[in-house]
Nucleic acid binder design. Structure first.
Lengths: 145, 145
DNA sequence: ATCCCTGCAAATCGTTTGCAAGAGC
DNA sequence: GCTCTTGCAAACGATTTGCAGGGAT
């Protein structure tokens, strides 16, 4: 089932409406595979004349998050970063503090250990996030030259 | 060497000044062992008539972070959370989404694996943070009753 | 028709900053 | 005395919201 269909189904189920603006945003979110923030998305839409306001971008992103088609992350620089879930199983992030590039990694063993930590604390995990900040390969290459 | 001395030394070294306001903030930060945000700290100071403005709280927290006596964390709710470093070696957090309690954990094996991930990506780690969101023991007890 | 949605601009919230007066060294 | 500091209030940037007109079902 396509992401579009999933979203429409979510809307229907929740008594919400399928509008031109929501379609535009949906298309923009799923045609790129990068991480983005709300304003970037707004500007991309504006750039191609999609006619969607900033307010609607925020409101629709909230819906996409609620319907689990998009993940929202607070990476600690004040604004939220989003990524769509399509073809992106759970993962964590390496964040370059020089070029802001975001790399993804997944390490099942770490996940297992997190689970163990929760058991020790009798803590029911709902989600987790893990960020490693540092300097990526490319930036280090540039620096050393 | 006391935290106060360390901070004063940092100030001296950097050509900054030791003021009444900075002493007040320092005292307040180190007499409690909880996590706090800037506004909580401001209110505690106000509560005991310390006569320090919100602006100065923010400015001094920045200095304390720069001097490595205090750690700043973005836990994803919009505002920053702080904790002093005294007697708190590096650790990560379990965050209860019901009562907002913050538990600390440290797992050397996880750290090792993170280091391994960085090597794979040829990524130079500078810092990392890891949060596990969920429901703590106490809140679960309350719910089930 | 009935809600739901939208754009706009104003409001919010945490945080930062310009400025003029005041304190440390 | 030269700087660094402070408080205040205004400025900020990301995000949210009230409202009144327009659209989906």
């Amino acid at each position: 089932m396509s992401e579009e269909t999933k979203f429409f189904e979510y809307l229907r189920r929740t008594g919400l409406k399928i509008t031109r603006e929501r379609k535009e945003i949906l298309r923009e979110v799923f045609t790129s595979h990068r991480h983005f923030d709300a304003d970037e998305l707004f500007l991309r839409l504006k750039g191609r004349g999609a006619g969607v306001s900033r307010a609607t971008v925020y409101r629709t992103l909230a819906l996409l998050v609620r319907s689990h088609l998009v993940r929202k992350m607070e990476l600690g620089d004040g604004r939220a970063t989003y990524e769509h879930v399509l073809g992106h199983p759970h993962h964590d992030h390496l964040i370059c503090i020089q070029c802001n590039r975001i790399l993804e990694f997944h390490h099942p063993e770490i996940e297992e250990l997190q689970q163990k930590v929760c058991e020790e604390f009798d803590f029911k995990m709902k989600s987790h996030s893990q960020q490693i900040y540092g300097v990526c390969k490319e930036c280090r290459k540039k620096q050393s030259s």
